[in-house]
Amino acid sequence: MSLFKHHVRIETNVLLLAVGTLITVSIGGLVEVAPLFSIESTIEKVDGVRPYSPLEQAGRDIFVREGCYNCHSQMIRPFKDEAERYGHYSLAAESKYDHPFQWGSKRTGPDLARVGGKYASDWHVRHLIDPRAVVPDSIMPGYPHLLRPLDYHDIGTRLRALRVVGVPYDDQAIADAARDLEAQATADPTASPPPVAARYPRLRLGRAVEAAADAPVTEMDALVAYLQVLGTMVDFSRIDPAPLRR
Rank of each mutant, 00 (worst) to 15 (best):
L147E: 12
E219M: 09
Q74R: 12
V167A: 07
L3T: 14
T24H: 08
R202T: 09
C71K: 05
M233F: 10
Q184S: 05
P216Q: 08
P131E: 05
G156A: 05
A113F: 09
L146R: 01
A215K: 06
I27C: 04
P78F: 13
Y200H: 05
V115E: 00
V209G: 12
S53F: 00
P100G: 12
R246G: 12
G87S: 12
L244T: 06
V165A: 03
P100Q: 12
A197W: 00
V8T: 12
P149Y: 13
S105P: 00
T12L: 15
V33G: 07
L30T: 10
K5W: 13
I62C: 10
C68K: 06
P51C: 10
K106A: 11
V229Q: 06
Q57M: 13
T108S: 12
R202G: 04
A191F: 03
I23Y: 09
P131K: 03
Q228S: 04
M1S: 12
T12M: 14
N13I: 10
R246P: 07
L3P: 01
L55K: 03
W103Q: 11
L147D: 07
A120C: 03
G156L: 05
A133D: 15
G104W: 04
P189S: 11
M220W: 12
S138G: 02
S2I: 13
L205F: 07
P35G: 13
A225N: 09
R85G: 01
T218W: 02
A225C: 09
S121C: 05
L30C: 10
L3F: 15
C68V: 06
A161R: 14
R114M: 06
L205P: 04
P54S: 10
R9S: 15
Y52S: 01
T24E: 06
R85E: 09
S105T: 14
L146S: 06
K45W: 11
I62Y: 07
H6F: 11
S192W: 00
V229L: 01
L15C: 08
V14S: 13
A242Y: 07
C68F: 02
V217P: 04
M140C: 05
